[in-house]
Design a protein around this nucleic acid. Structure first.
Lengths: 200, 200
DNA sequence: CGTCTATTTGAATGTACTCAAAAGCGGTGG
DNA sequence: CCACCGCTTTTGAGTACATTCAAATAGACG
């Protein structure tokens, strides 16, 4: 079966130049998979041996606290990497659950394959150094926003920042990403509608 | 002047093995500095060309929003790296301000030196890949905590997680790290005292 | 020692949550 | 393909968590 690796190759090549042999070595380690709506790629408590790369559809990583409340850590649409990185890196059972929001295609890479790649092709160190660097700065911006913005401002920021995610997710899921209740997000949206009418 | 690089060498060597020549190349790029209480290492709006490594004392990185409210992004005591990473990486003017909380020693490394090191000694890619990986997972945990815990729980978590930071910082600074007002942190502490008395 | 800032306390307020119930919409099975 | 069921969204009332403002007290730096 000929799987189309163009998307992930283009993504890697944004940061580093690879030759065909290196790319072949990389893609040989990838497993192509599909998931139905609500399928779990990773369940909290399970070993965390894989990292995922979205091709189509949408994935969601979330944490469930002791009271059962869900906090969405990230959405992964096409061309996003996702896993429970802390547990992946430290070989711990997952804290997060990752599930398909809708029918999705994705690629899977194991921790041992990735570590092999680091050793045999050091350019992958560079490539993933840059990916982690970007991931870190993105999370740091999110911390700043969580600390300094109101729920309404965070919602508007989310709309602006992630328009490509919107078609895939429910309001309830957005609320759990923003750290508010679905009821309160509904109220925020109502207020927004009022304002946009008042503008006219 | 013989500067003591043992601490930073030990820190790097936790992740990767370097030979003496490589370490010498690294340390030759470092500048040793001291800062008095309230000195700014980086001011919001300035170019962000340097990354800092704490040796003694304590540094604080914070964001000031349009209303003048400060959000502390991180504290850096001995053996912590700190900069406005987003702006450092993307060569943007700083969003954050970094200042010394107390008289401190630190090392400085420029972006161009670091990029040179990546190219001449690829092991530094590995080393910083791991540093960024850890930084990313740490920020992700903080996002989870900010979303799923109350202010009181976040405070207790902070005490548990960063005991080495406590002696260096004021309550006001802790409050700005937790995303609450100093008055409310004061109340939380009062409630904590009540509880610990009730225990007896 | 004096001044400036941090901390505490309290009252009034605002932001966001809980609980409950109705309305809307979408996926699934018959 | 339609109808039903279940989940999402909306709405509202009452509540809890956290803030603002103000003033008194305590501490720390120069």
């Amino acid at each position: 079966m000929a799987v189309d690796f163009q998307a992930i190759i283009a993504n890697l090549s944004r940061h580093t130049e690879f030759n065909p042999a290196e790319l072949a070595q990389f893609t040989s380690q990838l497993t192509w998979r599909q998931a139905a709506r609500r399928d779990c790629l990773l369940r909290a408590g399970q070993p965390t041996r894989k990292i995922f790369y979205g091709l189509s559809g949408a994935l969601r990583a979330f944490y469930v606290d002791k009271t059962g409340r869900e906090s969405t850590i990230m959405f992964a649409v096409a061309d996003w990497w996702v896993t429970d990185m802390y547990c992946f890196v430290n070989a711990q059972p997952a804290m997060l659950t990752i599930e398909a929001i809708e029918y999705s295609h994705y690629l899977e890479l194991t921790k041992s394959s990735l570590e092999q790649l680091y050793l045999t092709v050091p350019k992958f160190e560079r490539c993933f150094r840059i990916l982690f660097q970007n991931a870190y700065t993105r999370e740091q911006l999110r911390v700043i926003e969580n600390l300094s913005l109101t729920a309404e401002e965070r919602y508007l920021q989310f709309l602006k920042k992630y328009p490509q995610i919107l078609p895939h997710v429910t309001q309830k899921q957005i609320a759990s990403y923003l750290g508010i209740t679905p009821e309160f997000l509904s109220l925020i949206r109502k207020n927004q509608r009022q304002k946009s009418i008042a503008q006219k």
